[in-house]
Design a protein around this nucleic acid. Sequence first.
RNA 1: GCGGACGUGGUGAAAUUGGUAUACACGCCAGACUUAGGAUCUGGUGCCGCAAGGCGUGGAGGUUCAAGUCCUCUCGUCCGCACCA
Length: 814
Amino acid sequence: MIQYEPSKIEQKWQTRWYKSKAFEPSDDKNLPKQYILSMFPYPSGRIHMGHVRNYTISDAIARHYRQKGFNVLHPIGWDSFGMPAENAAIKHGLHPKKWTYENIDYMRKELASLGLSFSREREFATSDSLYTKFEQEFIIRMFEEGLLYEKKQRVNWCETCHTVLANEQVIDGRCWRCDNEVELREMPGFYIRITAYAQELLDDLKKLEKGWPKQVLTMQENWIGRSEGLSFTLLLSEESKRKTGDKFTGFDVFTTRPDTIYGVSYTALAPEHPIVNYLLENSLLTHEKRAAIKAMQNMPERERATADKEGVDLEISVIHPLTGKKIPVWVANFVLAGYGGGAVMAVPAHDQRDWEFAAKYNLPVHEVIASEQSDLAREAWTGEGTLTESAKFTGLSNSEAKEAIIRHFEALAIGKREINYKLRDWGISRQRYWGAPIPFIHCPSCGLVPEAIENLPVTLPDDVEITGEGNPLESHPTWKKTKCPRCHSDATRETDTMDTFVQSSWYFLRYCTPNDPERPFRREDVDYWMSVDQYVGGIEHAILHLLYARFFTKALRDLGYINVDEPFTNLLTQGMVLKDGAKMSKSKGNTVDPDAIIAKYGADTARLFILFAAPPQKELEWNDSAVEGAFKFIRRLVDRSAHVTERALPAITHASLSKEEKTARRKVYEALRKSNEIYENRSFAFNTVIAAAMEALNALNAQKNPLVWSEAYFVLLNLLEPVIPHVCWELSETLFERKNFGEITIPEEVFEADSIVLAVTVNGKKRDEIEVAPDLSKEEILEKAKEQCAKWLEEKTIVKEIYVPGKLVNLVVK
RNA sequence: GCGGACGUGGUGAAAUUGGUAUACACGCCAGACUUAGGAUCUGGUGCCGCAAGGCGUGGAGGUUCAAGUCCUCUCGUCCGCACCA
């Protein structure tokens, strides 16, 4: 028996690949290309099984395309800014930079031990100052084009820790670290105007329909949340105008149900609405009412969603734009400040929220859409119907009325058709040290000024102490002190750093030109490599990262940097790795350490198991004995290679072979055909290719022909190389001097059998099988089928005979 | 509530897209070799039944010569969004 020692083979090939730069793409831009990309990792310290799965999938795809003669870019890098580095600094007293770069060095070795065919020359970390430099340049260009702006925002603030907290860091209204109650605070921050691209981001989802999972497209569509309707102004009544000091004439509302306009019985403002604030500040409400409104304002938006409907009558009124009647104005906790002007027209009869609010505060309900199924005593009627009590629109169906009423408003110039999006602008400010500094300067005379391009990058100071309390850039003695690039007077640097999603929004472009110190990338390289042909990563990035990256690509296009509309043509969202039915996690203690698996069985076994146990899109349940099974298959593959006698693809006269030999040959080429198919149709169902290869090996065992064995190894090592590369390179080198890596033609004769087996079914139920010559006539086949199934045909009349060539015969009897 | 994905043996999963359901693997059972086996090899393994046979892709209907696959309804699991006017 030939020994299979994975550690020896794997080390040998990993070293050879590294030394020979085997996986660097060619500069020849005439070659057909494939850009295969996995989502880059955060350098948390050690790789986990999710990484192994992610990179094994993309590696198999990359290796396949290399064999097919493509120029393949399969890069790796590090998403290396972020909070865990600061947390480690607080906990272990390590500098975030040291911690991060040590982790990168360790994880790079771990990934190498998997035999991944990454380009080494294009690797970078997003915390490299060169990367920061170009990113800051992009941000400044966006500012110049109005795509970046500064405004005040309400944020979660922890007074004891002296920092802003992300929503995920607020647990039951308290700080995750010190347990102090979090307060909402208005703070200035930088925002990227992603909403300017809402329509294009929505429209271009169509371009991705072929290559992206439907689920992700739907999630993005919902997130962008386009809705079409009518926007108009509700004017304050004369006495209300006076009451609010003539500061306001009215407010805008947006509705998707203009057909219900005659059913408006009150209106409601968000607690943050300027009119509400005016009433509060000028003590125009009772003490109780003011307290109630303040309580609403202090409740975070996420909590309001689950809270009961609450409101306060503001004791002012507006005029209905069509009827001229007075309508009371309330403040309500369910009205969102950031959407549709922060105010709604309320139609309790035809909107469930409005109905609940009206029920609670005893407000009138006017039915204007009639339907037999409607029961307004129980709930609002939101379905179709006919308009009633709607002046000249009475009698129209509500879908006709929508259009008619919008046109009516436009004709009178008192309202207009409007499109609203749920998508909000992207707040990128983080009061954190370990991130890319936002390259702006606050000048007492010039205001907000971008840093001069020639001064970039604005880098982080190394001499900081990370305590977790406050932003170290803020407390650093000198860092933020600078000169205004415009007037050269003393000025202060912005101390916030950028959200790490900014870095991951353009890293795929940086890979196109290997580590150019002069520019972010070369235009011609991007033109050649982009878009990414296959992107592989977790479903958890379905919205944020994938939406931001799509936006960034479009924005950089419009800034003149690139000529690409969509960054990722095809997307594969891999399933999670589970153990005992739950996601592997340290806290659950159900992790399997990739290093230990590689040490015990080798990388090829780990890769084989991961690709065989489930299709890549599905969840993968870890199974120790199935890992063992994968190892045994490789060992058997190595062992049986002793049957190979030829050093090249042998010529075989198919007709001269025995039945078993023919079957073995057929199975081998079926596996090859399957392999080609899964890449072409982008299903990447490696599990079926591996199963086909196992079937072929089983069929080979039933015969002894050395030529058949030789041919089989020539083919099987070719198609298994993407999955178990080390052992395939080893065997291929020894047996065929690697001449079998490349395109292999499938001889069609192997699929032509001497005889074929047809199923015979009676009334669709399988009763027997017949073996016939492939060229036998339909009549003879039917005759034979009837003969063999005579038992089932006794005392019956055949009413129909169906013959599906190569498949079956169906006899329909009565 | 809205949207999406998915329900196939004891388990992970196949099924050329309407044509022989359960390939391949794990597990289990039996046997061979062996001092031994948690190694290796061989065979068996959907369910009920002694058998003939019957029943089987979450459930109920339907279309069809033929349905895991198409249609309608329904139950269940998972995921995303969630007071978006």
